[in-house]
Design a protein around this nucleic acid. Structure first.
Lengths: 171, 171
DNA sequence: CAGGATCCCTAAGGATACTG
DNA sequence: CAGTATCCTTAGGGATCCTG
C-alpha cells in the first residue's frame, strides 16, 4: 500500500537498467559470496573467530564446507591468513577479515536487524550494540551528502560510461 | 591488520552466543530468504516490477523458479498480491513489497554498495541515489541513540530472556 | 588441530513444453 | 499473460574416515 518501491525515474522499458545482473553490484556480490555458509563464516569472523575449529563449531557447519568456503573467502580477498602465537604454543595460522571483508559488516548488521525485527519480533537473544552507549545498532540509509534517506526517497541513476579515461596503463 | 572484529565482551567460550544459528537473526533471515534468486526478485520488486513477466525478464531467471520464489516470498509475507487495472484492460494481479519486504531495502542497498565498491571499484553503471540531492545512498551503521558507529565500535550483548511476561493468551 | 578424500543426498536452477 | 509440469544438471552441504 505504501508502495515502497524505488523511484524509477530512469528505468527504461527494457534492457540497460542497473538490474541487469552483469552490471548489478548486488548480483555480482552474490557471485563472490553467494551461499548461506559463507555468510555464517563472515559472521563468525566478525564475531572474532580465527581458528578453523571455531568456525566449524560456531557456524555449525561441517569441516569440508568450512574448508571450502574459507578458501573461497580467502581467494576472494574477504579473509586473510595470519600467523598468531599463543604463549607456550607453536605458531599457528588463523583467519581474519580484510578491509574488503569487514566492509560486509553493514550487510550483516542489516540482516541481523531485519531478522531481529521480523523473525524475533524485536526480542532476539542478543543485540549488536554500540560500545559507547549500549544501544542497538542498525544499518540506516544515508546519502553522501549526509541526508537521512527513506526507501521512498531513492532513485536509480544510470551512467553511460565510467569516464573511460585511458590514463596510465592499458593492455 | 585493523582487526575489524566485533568487541566480544560477552562472548562465552562456548554455546550461548548469538552466533548459534537458532538464535541468530541473520541465520534466521536466511531461512526466509536464502537464495540468490529471491534477492534478485526483491531487487526487482524494489525497482518497481509488479508483473510476473517483468520479474522473469529483469531478474533473468526462468519462469519455474520465478513462480516458486514469488510464491515463497508471498507466503513469507515479503510480497503481496494486489489487483491493478490498466485503462482498457481487464483487472490483473501484481506483486509488490509489503512493509516486511521493504524492510529488506537496507540489506539490498548495503549489498549494492559493497558490490559497487569491491566489484566495480566504485564505477558501477548505476547508483542508488537520493531523490533530493542526487548523491549516492549507502547503508551506514547507527545506534538507536543516533550515534554514527564504525565496525570497531560494535559489541555483542546477550539477554537472558525476552522478559517472558505471560501476559494475554498462552496456550 | 587443520584439514583432505569420499560418498551421498537435497535443493537450486535452467530448458522446454503445455494450460487457464 | 501467468503460470504448471517435466526433466535434467549442478552446486551446496552433511557424514564419515583418514592424514600432515
Amino acid at each position: 500500500m505504501s508502495q515502497p518501491q524505488i523511484a524509477l525515474s530512469s528505468l527504461p522499458p527494457r534492457e540497460q537498467w542497473l538490474a541487469i545482473n552483469e552490471h548489478c553490484p548486488m548480483a555480482q556480490m552474490f557471485e563472490v559470496v553467494g551461499t548461506r555458509t559463507a555468510f555464517l563464516l563472515l559472521r563468525e569472523a566478525f564475531y572474532g573467530a580465527t581458528r578453523f575449529d571455531q568456525f566449524v563449531e560456531r557456524a555449525e557447519i561441517s569441516e569440508p564446507v568450512a574448508a571450502a568456503r574459507l578458501k573461497e573467502l580467502v581467494d576472494a580477498g574477504l579473509l586473510e591468513r595470519f600467523a598468531y602465537q599463543e604463549p607456550g604454543q607453536r605458531s599457528r595460522d588463523g583467519y581474519r577479515l580484510t578491509d574488503k571483508g569487514s566492509d560486509m559488516v553493514p550487510v550483516l548488521v542489516a540482516m541481523v536487524a531485519w531478522g531481529d525485527r521480523w523473525v524475533f519480533d524485536g526480542h532476539a537473544r542478543g543485540k549488536i550494540s554500540h560500545v559507547g552507549c549500549g544501544e542497538q545498532v542498525k544499518a540506516v540509509l544515508r546519502c553522501d551528502e549526509g541526508h537521512d534517506v527513506t526507501p521512498a526517497d531513492l532513485e536509480l541513476r544510470l551512467h553511460r560510461r565510467p569516464k573511460l579515461r585511458p590514463a596510465a596503463s592499458a593492455a
